[in-house]
Design a protein around this nucleic acid. Sequence first.
DNA 1: CTATACAGAACCAATGCAGTCCTATTTAGG
DNA 2: CCTAAATAGGACTGCATTGGTTCTGTATAG
Lengths: 148, 148
Amino acid sequence: MLRIAKLTDYATVLMVRLAREPGRYFSAAQLAVELGVPQPTVAKLLKRLLRAHLLASTRGVGGGYSLALAPHAISVADVVGAIEGPLALTECARGKGNCSLERGCATRANWQLINHALRVALQAVSLADMARPQLQPVYVQALQEKMP
Amino acid sequence: MLRIAKLTDYATVLMVRLAREPGRYFSAAQLAVELGVPQPTVAKLLKRLLRAHLLASTRGVGGGYSLALAPHAISVADVVGAIEGPLALTECARGKGNCSLERGCATRANWQLINHALRVALQAVSLADMARPQLQPVYVQALQEKMP
DNA sequence: CTATACAGAACCAATGCAGTCCTATTTAGG
DNA sequence: CCTAAATAGGACTGCATTGGTTCTGTATAG
Ligand code: FES
Ligand code: FES
């Protein structure tokens, strides 16, 4: 229903937690108890985030995960992309041949614009922003002012 | 992966087709052949759109469906809502008790803001807009100018 | 050398989605 | 009146994705 996966939700909460103490290393177990989410699930998420180069890791005793970049340099779009893959609202938003209606479809171009707008919006929100209790809604205002 | 259901995609194409000849009534069979989508599927979509009061219908010989409102008065958000239910990016975006992390969650409020922004953005695009070959990207520009 | 902790993959159950089918009910026209 | 065309509203099913677990391997501090 046009919703992000639950795991993506968890991932943002994780990342925001890490963003609060950027230098520190957290073990998966530690984060799991802190969030109240089963440990294997947290571990899986951290692995995906690592693969997307959003995290740095150290193995062994005392090891763990830490942000690979500064909190303001990681966007919500990055996190969503790391967990769910590239953002594509419609089937046909990524490359041709994915949609059965392609021939003579009147909405493809427009959906792609909408898709792009959403991507830009999510890229504009950083972990640093998300860590604030209430998001500075600059882009929300920008939207609302322009809308009829 | 943060994508609308394929059926929703179909539905927008349907609605845009109807928006091109606002007065005319189309039968489900007619629309099905025109789009190249199986008839039962098209029928199902039309029923859902009708229930959401976006379409008007007439039964019997020569009956069919037509837009219930003018093309500029129906938004993409309306169509998405009719097919997929209320727009809720996150589990917790609609009411409490849906998310296991609620207690002490740091991102809920911010996700709801993002959710709201997306809803506003989709409400700003009407069927009349979608019917144009290339969407007038006022809101896209509005977004991009404000973003760092 | 051992306990800790990440790395990577395979695996499974459950949910939701795409798609079909069947049975009313309404209406135009002969 | 009677029939064919068309919508109204369900129930039903196969499939893909997701949420979540488990197992084996590897690196590292002490
Ligand atoms: S190409 Fe996919 S709906 Fe138009
Ligand atoms: S309440 Fe759902 S993730 Fe915060």
